[in-house]
Design a protein around this nucleic acid. Structure first.
Ligand code: MN
Ligand code: MN
Ligand code: ZN
Ligand code: ZN
Lengths: 141, 141
DNA sequence: TCCCATAATAGACTTGTTCTAAATATATAA
DNA sequence: TTATATATTTAGAACAAGTCTATTATGGGA
């Protein structure tokens, strides 16, 4: 818990109970959760927490580079506490998002002369091992 | 116009006036438009066309692989008639989306054993040449 | 302790998209 | 051709993710 507080203080974010708990959740549940998944979980820990606080907190974390935003697939945003360079795979059957390693430096690029590239995202989609081997395509993984 | 009809018939899509006009727009305006941009343009051509028709048509086109869906940046979907392999760059200043060439085959990947990869998207963000050279960051490009 | 700035809260609001039910258009059958 | 069935369009309601607003709570410094 103390480590979490440090993490926030180091980034000049006041370590409110709400913020610490959300940070704790992100660190312990590396499933690229949606805001709603975080909100649902928080109801157990701090039943009074509002959805606005979840969004406020995530936006605060985003602004200091504590989390990254994934917009893979569209309708809802996902949040990732893992700031290292990596790609994301989304299973079209069960919806889970998985990390993979990729080194774009090797990659042949063209058409970006004079562009200032600041962020690079790689999104793959398809079927995860469980869904690939089970043609039933349950939607539970 | 006839070519457009062929394109739709070949994919077993009934070539209604609405569908042909939307296809024509996508082919002639390769700006990765949003549904609303398409709707705005259609108001000039077919003033009675409803927004639902724009969405219905785009979803029909998506289902037969005539367009691809881009969810770069989040809030609104963009549609791309260019089905060749390429990456997308979104300017954080003016919002325009640009194509670039990339060959992911060269790329060192890890952690995707037993995954069935069906779609690959590469999204870069930053500043386009015009916005890079003009620190004013106008939002018009 | 009292202040003041910051944060949390509930709910209204906005926006992009889908759904629904009715009207219209097109294809097929008699 | 007319009747009937099917597919498409339409307008607006409904929905969902996320933001905004106004109010209340919190917590550190004087
Ligand atoms: Mn990740
Ligand atoms: Mn493109
Ligand atoms: Zn799966
Ligand atoms: Zn630009």
């Amino acid at each position: 818990m103390d480590k979490l507080v440090q993490e926030l203080v180091a980034r000049k974010i006041r370590p409110s109970i709400q913020r610490v708990k959300i940070l704790e959740y992100l660190i312990n549940n590396r499933i690229h959760p949606t805001a709603d998944q975080i909100f649902q979980h928080m109801q157990k820990e701090i039943p009074t927490m509002s959805k606005a606080t979840v969004y406020n907190t995530l936006n605060t974390f985003l602004s200091v580079g504590l989390v990254r935003l994934l917009t893979i697939g569209g309708s809802e945003a996902r949040y990732d506490i893992n700031m290292t360079t990596h790609g994301h795979f989304k299973c079209e059957s069960c919806g889970t998002v998985h990390d993979f390693t990729i080194d774009l430096e090797d990659c042949e690029l063209g058409g970006l002369d004079d562009f200032t590239v600041e962020k690079r995202d790689v999104h793959f989609r398809g079927y995860c091992p469980r869904c690939s081997s089970n043609p039933g395509r349950s939607s539970k993984c």
